[in-house]
Design a protein around this nucleic acid. Structure first.
Lengths: 203, 203
DNA sequence: GTCTATAAGATGATAGAC
DNA sequence: GTCTATCATCTTATAGAC
């Protein structure tokens, strides 16, 4: 049985195809419910090619994970470069997360929902990854500049983005009545109120 | 090889022992990294007993899940009965979640972090479960009474509890510098500010 | 680099004695 | 109700031809 007729897909393109297929299956069924043979079948390539490019299943997941985290980080970096004050940055970050969840729900699901500890045991928790660290830095700067109330940084960071992330989960779980974008402005406003320095907070 | 010498643990006690063991392993290694044989070995019972009491692995996970959700819901119900105004209820709910995460981290990890969809495919998402619905109701009532700003309910609910839940994740991932309790008051305050009706919001 | 066929091991589940 | 022994299947991974 020929898997990849005339080997029309080869090299880097084959690698990309396998990654895309893995993302779809991992995000839909989970890492453990997806066998290498599932990916092989759906991608229409041979199991030998998959092992040639990635070595083993865990390394395939890790390649995917690194790729997605890097793309997410690039998006956040862009926001941080574009905006300068803390409110605008928080708004931009939340808007970016929403857009990403709308346009690339599978990627978002894999980054946000997957329990990476269970299949990438040597990986630090997601919350220690670059994108999440960037969010924390944004808030830390905001505190330093007096735009955000003085608070413990983990509290401020989770207060700022926890609501949005939680709403992202609801969206990905398909339990929201309205499209995600409908909730954007209110989510940004609530996030900022949670941490904003108000006149009454000044000493 | 005798597993349960003289069958000292039997009936309901055996069932409980299996559930406790399953919780520890599922929460530490994940559902898919835990085999029935692992649970059998650690609990010191026979595989036959496990299948007698639960039928299959998925049903074991479901029994555990239902049990934990019910306990969590009971805790939230207690808070709702004790407090009447929305701010006190939100504070109480967050305090309860923190206490539960401190005293029963394995249970919290299984309820909050596990991807139940992947091993309980017929179960609705956690966010639709009783405890989470209760939180949403609390906020909805707060809006109705004018204690919370008029907002989309999903936004208000995630804004109120998303930060706390996110911080719980950080705690369970072991990335917080301080003990969780240290962050309680600030988390409650930030949660309330995110949704509170202020004089300036009144028309 | 890609392919097919196969190996080696683990897993969920069952049968049947006590 | 609990036990041991065993099964059938699936999974990851490798070998070796092209």
């Amino acid at each position: 049985m020929t898997e990849n007729p005339k080997q029309s897909v080869r090299g880097a393109a084959l690698r990309k195809l396998v990654l895309d297929t893995a993302l779809e299956r991992f995000s839909r069924d989970g890492y453990f419910n997806t066998s290498i043979h599932d990916i092989r079948r759906q991608a229409g390539v041979s199991i030998g090619s998959i092992y040639h490019h990635f070595g083993n299943k865990e390394a395939l997941a890790k390649a995917l994970y690194d790729d997605l985290l890097q793309r997410m980080d690039a998006g956040l970096a862009e926001v941080m470069g574009r905006e300068s004050d803390c409110r605008a940055r928080c708004d931009g970050i939340i808007a970016f997360l929403f857009e990403a969840a709308i346009e690339a729900p599978q990627a978002m699901r894999f980054v946000l929902e997957a329990r990476h500890r269970e299949f990438l045991p040597d990986e630090p928790p997601v919350c220690s990854s670059q994108p999440f660290q960037r969010m924390r830095e944004c808030i830390e700067q905001g505190i330093g500049r007096g735009e955000v109330r003085p608070m413990e940084v983990p509290v401020a960071a989770t207060a700022a983005f926890g609501g949005a992330i939680r709403l992202l989960h609801l969206h990905l779980d398909g339990v929201l009545e309205q499209p995600l974008a409908h909730y954007l402005a209110e989510t940004q406003e609530a996030a900022w109120r949670a941490i904003a320095m108000t006149p009454a907070d000044r000493p």
